[in-house]
């Protein structure tokens, strides 16, 4: 059964201009893999070249950050909502 994934404003252009998409998967990792299989342009903004989630990309299952759960192995239940939430960061000196 598909779960909802909430897409933040800057990524909607890469997800068919939608703020919510649906994907299937037993874990967060599987869900995101299935989502980026359908919306391939999202991949570059979510993952580094070696396939790791960028560190300013936060993935929440309902209200919980997956860093404090089982990361990408976090299981997904029917009805769970996954959110992609940006950390916006920067600064003056390299």
């Amino acid at each position: 059964m598909a779960n909802k994934i909430l897409i933040p404003t800057p990524l909607r252009a890469y997800a068919g201009k939608q703020d919510v998409v649906e994907a299937e998967g037993g874990t967060v990792g599987e869900l995101l893999a299935n989502m980026t299989a359908e919306y391939a342009d999202l991949r570059n903004h979510l993952y580094t070249e070696d396939g790791k989630l960028r560190n300013f990309v936060n993935i929440y299952v309902n209200d919980d950050d997956i860093r404090y759960l089982e990361k990408e192995q976090t299981p997904i239940k029917p009805g769970d909502t996954v959110s992609i939430i940006p950390s916006v960061a920067g600064g003056g000196r390299a």
């Binding site: 404003t9 800057p10 990524l11 252009a13 890469y14 903004h45 300013f56 940006p86 950390s87 916006v88 960061a89 920067g90 600064g91 003056g92 000196r93 390299a94």
Partner: peptide, 26 residues
């Protein structure tokens, strides 16, 4: 989003680039 660069030019740094999101005005 906006941010300030104290005593530094109003140009994005490498750190800004590494952490940037598409579409947004910075």
């Amino acid at each position: 989003f906006y941010h300030s660069h104290p005593d530094h030019p109003a140009r994005p740094s490498r750190y800004d680039l590494d952490h940037a999101w598409p579409v947004f005005a910075y």
